[in-house]
Structure formats: structure tokens, C-alpha cells
Amino acid sequence: MKKLLTATAILLATPFVAHAGADFVKGDRTFAADAELGATVTTGNTETTSLKGRLDMKHELGNWENQYLLEALYKEDTGEETGKRYYGLVQGNYQFDDVNYMFANANHEIDPFTGFDSKSTVSVGYGHKFIDNPKTIFAVEVGPGYQYKRLDEESRLAAGYDSEQSWVAHGVMNFETEISDNSTFKQLFTADYGESLEGRSETSVTANIAGALAMKFAVVVRYNSEPLDNKKSTDTETNMTLLYSF
């Protein structure tokens, strides 16, 4: 755990240290963000609540392209909590040229319904943009990483240990393209392979409503090749949210 915290601190500090120097020399910055919110509430014979929020921020400064992502999901059915997930990510990309870059990534997830209190991963590696034009982006990232997972109390008692940690091979494939002047299709695959294979796929279509406001439909699939006892390998999530860009 100490190794993970040290690596995370270095990764988080690197983009900001580089930013200070780049800002002094160039001073050319751009910032963009997407905020999403979706909710479903039913009352009467069936009482359910579902909330989904997401804030995705991107910052360009000199040779650095950085992303800061926050996600939250909460579900309740007849007064009983049936889903809860919080996720945060920070990634800094240092551009060697228009298509090649080095990345440093740190992310943390809290999802008690998987049997883990939390999961943290740090990774570094190489990225390449195979396509990068105003309408389409196709990029791939690969590199080594380190993962730490802390079991919840029930899982600790059953397994007889507190945590799992391992080196992983980290990979990302990101594809985005404009379907029309008012709609965009996105496909994101993320995978970490160590003692087990953990993957995440997000497929989404965004359609503009008016100005900076859009409607987003997304299907998220999470996979773990070796889940804890009494847990399923695959989780799916379907969302319809409003998205505001600024």
C-alpha cells in the first residue's frame, strides 16, 4: 500500500509541476468540461431511486493534455441500497508530437457491491493516436501499472486476508466519431491484466438538444475474470443522462 501511495503522489504531482514551467514559458491554455446528470424516482407500489452524475474535465497546457474525471452512481429499491459506486481519475499526457505521447494515470474506485471497500490503480506508458482529426479520434494506450484492492469486512473474514495487490498490464482503446452534425458515437475499452483480467467497456451516443445541452445514452459493461465468492463476473449499467458542455 505504501508503494501505491508513493507512486500515486508522484503521478499526481508530475502534471502540475510541468504545468508551472510550461505556463511560464508559453501561457497558452485551453480548458473544457462535460457535466452529466441523470435521475429516476418512482413512488407508489414501487419505490426506486437511481442517480448518476459525472464531471469530465480536460486541460491543455503546452505539451500536456490532462484529464480529471469524477463519477458517482447510487441506486435504492424500496428503501434498500442496491448500488453505489464512486470513481475518480487523473491522467496526464505528455505529447512528443501530434500522435505520440507518454501517459501517467491514477484512479480510485469505491464499489462495496463487488466485495471490495476500494480499488486503486496507477500506471504509466505510451499512447498513439492512429486517427486524430476534427471528426474522428482513435487512440491506444499501453503500459505497466500497480493495483491495490482492499476487501470489505465480510470478504476479509471469508478470505482470511485484508487486501490484494499486484502488478498489471494496463491498456486503453478510445474511439470517437461524429455520426452527424449534432451527434457523436464513442467507444472506450479499458483493461488491467495481472492476477486476473478486469475490463470496462463504455458505449455511448450523444445527441445535441440545444446549444451546449445534449442527451447521452450509454451502456457500461464491467468484467472481472476472478470475482470474489458469491459475486458475478459481469456488471452492466444503462444510463440516459443530460450533458452540459462548457
Rank of each mutant, 00 (worst) to 15 (best):
Asp117His: 12
Arg156Val: 04
Tyr86Asn: 14
Ser123Thr: 04
Phe130Leu: 09
Asp162Lys: 15
Asp117Asn: 15
Lys119Met: 13
Tyr87Ile: 08
Gly194Asp: 06
Lys129Gln: 10
Lys129His: 09
Phe175Gly: 00
Lys186Gln: 12
Ile137His: 09
Asp98Tyr: 06
Val140Phe: 14
Trp167Glu: 09
Glu164Arg: 11
Leu151Pro: 00
Gly115His: 03
Gly194Asn: 10
Gly88His: 04
Ile110Lys: 08
Arg156Asp: 03
Glu154Met: 09
Thr121Asp: 05
Ser118Phe: 05
Tyr86Cys: 05
Val90Arg: 07
Phe138Thr: 03
Phe116Gln: 07
Met102Tyr: 13
Glu198Gln: 12
Phe103Leu: 06
Arg200Ala: 12
His170Thr: 13
Ile131Asp: 00
Leu188Gly: 02
Phe175Thr: 00
Val142Asp: 01
Glu76Asp: 13
Phe103Ile: 04
Ser183Lys: 09
Pro112Cys: 03
Pro112Trp: 04
His128Ala: 05
Asp98Thr: 14
Asp98Trp: 05
Leu157Gln: 12
Glu198Asp: 13
Phe175Arg: 00
Gly92Glu: 01
Ala158Val: 11
Gly79Ser: 06
Thr184His: 00
Gly194Lys: 11
Ser166Pro: 05
Ala169Trp: 05
Val122Cys: 07
Asp77Glu: 13
Tyr161Ile: 08
Ala106Phe: 11
Glu164Asp: 14
Asp117Gly: 06
Glu141Pro: 00
Asp132Trp: 02
Leu157Asn: 10
Gly79Ala: 08
Tyr86Ala: 13
Phe138Asp: 01
Asn107Met: 10
Tyr101Pro: 00
Phe103Gln: 01
Glu80Gln: 15
Ile137Trp: 03
Lys149Gln: 14
Glu198His: 07
Thr184Glu: 05
Val99Asn: 14
Val168Lys: 01
Asp152Glu: 10
Gly160Thr: 09
Asn93Thr: 01
Tyr146Leu: 09
Met102Lys: 09
Gly160Leu: 08
Ala106Lys: 04
Ala139His: 02
Val172Gly: 00
Tyr193Trp: 09
Asn182Thr: 15
Glu141Thr: 01
Asp192Arg: 01
Asn107Ser: 14
Tyr193Pro: 01
Phe138Leu: 15
Asn107Tyr: 11
Arg156Ser: 06
Ala139Leu: 06
Gly194Cys: 10
Glu164Trp: 02
Gln95His: 13
Phe130Asn: 05
Leu197Cys: 07
Tyr101Leu: 02
Leu89Arg: 14
Tyr94Thr: 06
Tyr94Phe: 13
Ala159Ile: 07
Ile131Thr: 04
Gly143Gln: 02
Ala191Trp: 02
Phe103Met: 04
Met102Arg: 10
Ala191His: 02
Gly143Tyr: 01
Arg150Val: 13
Trp167Gly: 12
Gly125Ser: 09
Asn174Pro: 02
Asp192Phe: 04
Thr114Cys: 09
Met102Ala: 15
Gly88Phe: 11
Gly125Gln: 05
Val90Tyr: 15
Thr78Trp: 11
Asp97Phe: 03
Tyr126Ser: 05
Gly83Arg: 09
Asp152Val: 07
Ile137Tyr: 09
Asp192Val: 02
Pro134Cys: 06
Tyr146Asn: 02
Asp111Gly: 06
Asp97Leu: 03
Asp77Ala: 11
Ser163Glu: 10
Glu81Leu: 12
Ile110Leu: 11
Glu81Trp: 03
Thr114His: 05
Asp132Gln: 13
His108Met: 12
Gly79Phe: 10
Thr184Arg: 07
Asp98Lys: 15
Gln187Glu: 13
Lys149Pro: 00
Gln147Met: 14
